[in-house]
Design a protein around this nucleic acid. Structure first.
Lengths: 207, 207
DNA sequence: GCAAAAGTGTTGTGTCTACACCCATGT
DNA sequence: ACATGGGTGTAGACACAACACTTTTGC
């Protein structure tokens, strides 16, 4: 009876490897009077995660009440475990789908790519990460311009030497921040830019 | 000991009244083997809500593990309870702030306004709702154009007669859908529009 | 006629996609 | 020289804010 309302914390960790989005899922029972984050750190190695955020709480098919977190690991990170490609079906399919959807959305309007990319990279390398995470093609040209214009990317020193087949050496970039930032907050309905950002009037319904 | 991991479901319900955003909070203990939604329906009158979505799970200041839901009620809806303006401090301040932030964000890129507005309304009336919910001024002109262009609003039959002070009669509008839809999904990094929406290539890391 | 409220026309700005073109390297 | 991969220039599409202007009513 004591555990009939037991709670589990699930970590759904994503990374990109060899052009594929991979997932690692771990869970841990919430102890009495324990906070959620400590339980998460028992479920997965949180120190290896470049970004963590809560996903959702749901009752799993086996009846367990679980709070899921999304974790992201850089492409050059090392986190041991039973990684599998997200395209392959496995346990916790709905949680993995939710994690993927969340990542996909946030890649568009935040700088969350920092948590998937190595500390320094070329635009081509970053493009492959975005392609794998978004599931559709991405233009390297436009990716660079969008992220630089938004101030998300900045140049790093040095270049990457070309491979045996030649080609111009690639410039190196890094993410300007390693904390989540919303880069496109007011895509629409942004507040007025006028001389004084007007406050809402104490308006009343007409009549 | 049996309730040390007890779980509470909290409903944070928002509505706009007289130009002010108001909140009503209710909670219910999750019963053994109960799903989350039934518990929510004991916390608040879900049948009065035009939209519901899960907010977050956290441990409240009193140590209770709680999953919060955001509920929205139309301006002409009737839901009894201890409503208070969101600007006035009260219990569950952080959950209310999270609800407000979620509503504010979704007003920009979804049609969620349908859940705050009456079934038929003028642009002026809708503008007051947006002003109260967003906390900043909104241009009636641009609000109409944005929402009509996106296909979120459509004209309803008839007009609203002007008040005693005169003025042109206002056209009536309604929301085209009463279910949540994302209206601006690919604000950036949208997939190619080319002849064939190209699939991601089986790309490998360079080198 | 005049004030008030609603709605439309139009201009300018910023962000994005697409694509042509140039740059730097290996063979 | 030429292929290859990287990067820039630039044009066009689109959505938005801002504001002038027109429409329709009450008094």
């Amino acid at each position: 009876m004591a555990d009939s309302t037991s709670h589990t914390v699930v970590g759904v960790v994503l990374r990109v490897r060899e052009g594929h989005l991979e997932v690692l899922v771990g869970g841990a029972r919430l102890r009495q009077h324990e906070q959620l984050e400590p339980a998460l750190s028992r479920a997965v190695d949180v120190s290896a995660l470049a970004h963590v955020e809560q996903l959702e709480t749901r009752i799993l098919p086996d009846g367990v009440l679980a709070t899921a977190y999304l974790g992201l690991v850089p492409a050059d990170g090392t986190l041991a475990g039973a990684w599998r490609e997200v395209t392959k079906v496995g346990e916790h399919g709905e949680l993995v789908a939710a994690a993927q959807a969340r990542l996909r959305a946030k890649l568009s309007y935040t700088n969350v790519g920092f948590a998937l990319a190595p500390s320094v990279f070329t635009i081509s390398e970053l493009r492959e990460i975005y392609v794998a995470a978004l599931g559709h093609d991405v233009s390297a040209t436009n990716l660079q311009r969008v992220l630089v214009r938004r101030g998300v990317l900045e140049r790093a020193d040095g270049q990457r030497a070309p491979g045996r087949t030649g080609g111009r050496p690639a410039a190196l970039f890094r993410f300007a921040s390693d904390r989540l930032e919303v880069t496109d907050e007011f895509a629409a309905l942004r507040p007025p830019t006028g001389p004084e950002s007007r406050r809402p009037r104490g308006s009343r319904a007409s009549g």
